[in-house]
Amino acid sequence: MGFKKLSLNLVIKFTNILFVPFMLFALIGVSQVYAQSGNPPTADQINAIAKQLYCPVCENTPLDVCPTQACAQWRDVIRDKLVAGWNEEQIKEYFVNQYGDRVLAEPPKRGLNWLVYVLPPIFFLGGLVLVYKNIKNARKLESTITSAPIVEDDPFLKEFEDVLRKMEENGKNG
């Protein structure tokens, strides 16, 4: 019994001598890194950035929800960069440098990419001008004609609208 206790103590001592300095060293090392950025990043902090980056090899899949192994590794990269004290913009820039503009949710506003942002509003404004012209003509005409609402061509609807109108005129509707 006594021998067993002694040998156990020796093992613990030996372990302490061998591993405690190593563990302490490791802890100091880690805490030095964390010291740069505070607490270790949470999954939510990683996802907040991963959400804005798109998988460079899949189609239209944000990194935070991409189920592939490759994306899991890219999320690890984001974690490592956060641990190293990088901020969101630096990490996004790193991914763009590594994999190109396609990792961003939208093309950066330069060169040909401007077309993405400019063309739809131009089309819409063009459409708006057309509608405006149509309505402007209509308003001109409105002042020259005394038009009544178009009579329903459906006998049922006509009857129905007549009843409604009468009710409203008599102030009973409500």
């Binding site: 798109y54 239209n60 944000p62 190109g100 503009d101 396609r102 990792v103 961003l104 949710a105 939208e106 093309p107 060169g111 040909l112 990419n113 993405v116």
Partner: peptide, 12 residues
């Protein structure tokens, strides 16, 4: 046109 792939995703 440019050989560059871009993503136009949900936010746009």
């Amino acid at each position: 046109l440019t050989g560059q792939k871009v993503t136009v995703a949900a936010p746009f």
